[in-house]
Nucleic acid binder design. Structure first.
Lengths: 195, 195
DNA sequence: CCTGAAAAATTACGTGA
DNA sequence: TCACGTAATTTTTCAGG
């Protein structure tokens, strides 16, 4: 896998504005042909940089319950397990795992039914939580102006054109060199065996 | 504007999973022809229910600074103005306006540069804030299983097929009846004049 | 990575329920 | 009004260089 260049970032930015824009139009903006853009997008999907194409729905115009923000602190369950359970819930939209091991997320619930919803979500586990009412929610796919680059899953260094990528259990990982890759794989296998 | 029906929701759900799925494939799933799906999607866009089509980028694979969650409480500036300023920042991804008038948002910043970033963002204003480190961020376009319907911008009732819609200052508003529409328009004009 | 042709998808339009 | 079928157009994919 080649490292990302400025053109890739520009393509991502343009797709973020409108993912149905024709590849030829994107190509015109970045100085490439349509097929070349198509190739790059395929590569970005393959590399796992692009998770997928989706639609931005204005939920404020829809009666989908009121938006609430929940800060949950799991007591009897590990946060990774709780995260999976929460992420799978249909009503959950945004989810943050904090460095302190708390799970913060936003979702929609019927008026007055917030606790009922959360009791069901946390069922059987001890979870402390705080609920905050939310008036407005926005999400921006923008990529920001900061430097972007693939990072090595083993050492954290930037992955350049010398790097390589591997698919492990349906997830793509990038590495800056083959020794990082093999070290990562070994450790991964050990963890797998232990589980 | 017709009210939303089950088919519209299913279309939105399918587009949320993959917005580049062909309309004909969506049609097959909901029992319509390709053109019929196209018509409905156009209507949903026109109505402002669909904000746009976008791409979901896995930022965890990109070295785009570390994600942080900020809870800001404006002191010397009204929250609406601050919201605009924050929403326009390139580094901001998720934004929540709480019912208590606080602005909560997530974004990316270079390691150790969080305060620098926020000082620039809040420049000239007095804003109290708390920063939390975030390990993982997820966003789900899922619509949930709850009832959906357009809501009247004036009275909050459900908009049915008797309702009407108007575009004011490039924003679409839906109303359950014409009297709600005119009452809203009048008040809107008064506010405009005052500004 | 480009050009140019083939395949596929989207849109436009006339018709009918 | 809504949806279908067909045709025209656009877009994507695929081949060769």
């Amino acid at each position: 896998m080649q490292s990302l260049d400025e053109t890739d970032l520009e393509i991502l930015r343009l797709l973020g504005e409108d993912s149905r824009r024709p590849f030829a139009a994107i190509g015109e903006a970045v100085g490439l042909s349509g097929p070349a853009v198509s190739d790059r997008v395929s590569r970005l999907e393959e590399a796992g940089v692009i998770n997928g194409f989706t639609v931005d729905v204005d939920r404020s115009q829809l009666q989908a319950g009121i938006p609430v923000f929940v800060r949950a602190s799991p007591q009897s369950i590990d946060v990774a397990t709780l995260r999976e359970r929460v992420a799978d819930d249909e009503a959950v939209e945004h989810l943050f795992l904090t460095a302190e091991g708390e799970l913060w997320f936003s979702g929609r619930t019927q008026v007055g039914a917030a606790h009922e919803w959360l009791d069901r979500l946390f069922e059987g586990e001890s979870v402390e939580y705080a609920v905050t009412l939310v008036d407005a929610v926005e999400w921006h796919p923008s990529l920001g102006a900061t430097d972007f680059a693939l990072t090595c899953a083993e050492c954290g260094n930037t992955v350049d054109s010398e790097g390589e990528s591997t698919r492990i259990d349906d997830e793509i990982y990038h590495f800056c060199c083959s020794s990082c890759r093999s070290r990562f794989s070994e450790r991964y296998d050990r963890i797998e065996e232990g589980a």
